[in-house]
């Protein structure tokens, strides 16, 4: 790049006459393109859910989906390289940490038996009353939205061919990940629950109180999610689990673990309780996820049935 300087110096003086005519940015084109952008924005905002740009989104998605899947597959071996270089010391430390965590968890299970039983009974009751019967379609995250774009969305490599559709619940082995916004044939866009636009109906495990969990959209990954209970008089307990509440036609299935309450604030002005929920899912290292589909869905890949069998 150092050589980008000198040789054409006199050309500048010669060219300056033609500069005006030839390479001065044309204002009319700028105005036209800015107006085009504003038109796009207006169309998309006023359209809302049935935006006229949805078909365009889908078309672009169909084109970019396979490219993203292929790129993610090519990139995957390299992203796992750092893991190979972890030393024995690191691993020993990790084992120690995990043993400590394991002991903690065992203690929690023993002491929190009452709550657990209650929750379990409740779960069994609802699942008996109404067969959940959900199967999981496995998928991998192939693309992540950038923070500059201010939305917390990812692309997964399963789409309508795999039996997916909008508003389906996406989970991984830790808990709730988000819901599907739109699908193409081979990919789907997932809105993560950390997105500030995302609202999930949540239920506090021990008290069965219902509320709404919204993403904070904060840059800080420790910021967690916001939980607001409908009943302002109930104070949620710390370390209590929050699960999805679920509704007949809403996007989220019921009983999926969301996170753990880490802090509780009381707001006198709004007469409501606000709690911070640390999600179970680690959103910075999202990879394999499952999409909850009705049992018996036809899919282009193996589906994990509700009883754990592979179909």
């Amino acid at each position: 790049m150092g050589s980008l300087g000198g040789p054409d110096r006199e050309r500048r003086w010669r060219g300056i006459d033609s500069l005006d005519a030839r390479s001065r940015p044309p204002r009319s084109l700028l105005v036209a393109l800015v107006l085009a952008s504003v038109t796009l924005i207006t169309l998309d905002v006023s359209g809302g859910q049935s935006s006229p740009l949805e078909p365009a989104r889908r078309a672009v998605g169909e084109a970019f989906g396979p490219a993203q899947s292929a790129a993610a597959t090519a990139v995957r071996p390299f992203t796992s390289v750092p893991a190979w270089f972890r030393s024995k010391g690191d691993l020993a430390e990790e084992v120690r940490d995990l043993e400590a965590a394991n002991a903690d968890l065992r203690e929690q299970v023993q002491t929190a038996g009452v709550d657990r039983n209650r929750l379990q009974q409740y779960d069994e009751l609802t699942s008996a009353a109404e067969d959940l019967g959900h199967a999981l379609v496995p998928a991998r995250v192939v693309a992540l939205g950038s923070r500059q774009s201010q939305s917390f969305t990812v692309t997964i490599d399963a789409g309508s061919d795999a039996g997916l559709g909008p508003d389906m619940t996406v989970v991984n082995n830790d808990g709730l990940v988000g819901r599907i916004l739109r699908v193409t044939r081979t990919t789907a866009t997932v809105l993560l629950i950390t997105d500030p636009e995302s609202t999930v109906g949540g239920r506090v495990g021990s008290s069965s109180e219902v509320g709404f969990v919204t993403g904070s959209g904060s840059l800080d990954e420790d910021a967690g999610l916001d939980l607001r209970l409908l009943d302002g008089t109930v104070v949620p307990a710390r370390d209590d689990a929050v699960v999805t509440w679920g509704s007949e036609n809403g996007p989220y299935e019921r009983g999926v673990p969301i996170g753990r309450i880490t802090e509780v604030y009381s707001s006198v002005r709004e007469a409501s309780q606000r709690a911070v929920v640390a999600p179970y899912v680690d959103f910075s290292s999202l990879d394999v996820v499952g999409v909850m589909v009705p049992s018996g869905t036809t899919s282009d890949r193996a589906v994990i049935e509700a009883d754990g069998s592979l179909r």
Partner: peptide, 11 residues
Amino acid sequence: LAPPADHVAGR
């Protein structure tokens, strides 16, 4: 418009 994007198009 390309997949993971979900903001208002045109921005």
